[in-house]
Design a protein around this nucleic acid. Sequence first.
DNA 1: AGGCTTTTCCTACTTTAGTATGAGAACTTT
DNA 2: AAAGTTCTCATACTAAAGTAGGAAAAGCCT
Lengths: 148, 148
Amino acid sequence: MRPIIIGFGLLILCLLLLFRIGEVNFIKGDVKLEVIVAIAALIFFLVGLFFNYHSQKKISQVQPPSPAIADTPTSVIDYEQIKKLGLTQREHDVLVKMAEGLSNQEIGTALFLSESTIKTHVSNILFKLDAKRRTQAVQIAKQLKIVL
Amino acid sequence: MRPIIIGFGLLILCLLLLFRIGEVNFIKGDVKLEVIVAIAALIFFLVGLFFNYHSQKKISQVQPPSPAIADTPTSVIDYEQIKKLGLTQREHDVLVKMAEGLSNQEIGTALFLSESTIKTHVSNILFKLDAKRRTQAVQIAKQLKIVL
DNA sequence: AGGCTTTTCCTACTTTAGTATGAGAACTTT
DNA sequence: AAAGTTCTCATACTAAAGTAGGAAAAGCCT
């Protein structure tokens, strides 16, 4: 939580600074309004991306323990199985993308991670699922109801 | 990738529009700079959220295999589909093995063929299914009921 | 018999995947 | 605050996968 708080703190500071600069330059009139607006836009666009990225991460972590009503309908992820295999949240995320047929590079892009990181996760997944290839891992994962 | 291009196009339009408004108000001098910057920031923050949200949805949308309802006996190979795609018998054989998570070498052994031959078949399968990787081909094949 | 498709196989590459190892940052738990 | 996990990323390889292009044998069709 600390980094996020710090991040938002800096953000607010940034915002205040922008306003300050904006005001000063507004008086002096030597910097185009467009530039200020553009900078603000860019910063907040990135902030939007960042914010959403982190909030989604949090959401995907809370999901597992929620389904208490379901009477095991045809297709539901077996979280017990995941726990039993020792798969972590991130590994499961990667596994889902793998099952969609994405390459390591594409998974990295989708999850905002480097290909190296994906390779590490994939390697761990293969080990934990006792698979030799990603295709086999997907096959096993589907049979174990780890992915849909 | 088209949606992304369109998205950025709209984004740029939005930006230009903002500048236009900014300039007009700058001349009239009846709106505070802070307000403009704040609006720009807010808009692009939302755009950031929206953009990220959609890029993530797109990727995970390929999933729903929609468990066919009653009329089709839950799981049967759609031979019409196979014919439609121009897949030959041998290619389908290989596709099935691919879906089981076998390597090219293993498929070759299973079908009494050389690895070279399997590679040729796999390459043709990928082309006919419009897939880039075998994992993707398997995903597509399962959705199209070409393999179980 | 000649044309067409399928199947098989090869060489020579290019590109992804996967392994091994190490390491730092972040989060959780104690 | 210290310890254990998880997550991230990197380098350096090794091993599969996939591409391109060619080629020959076998079966089908009319």
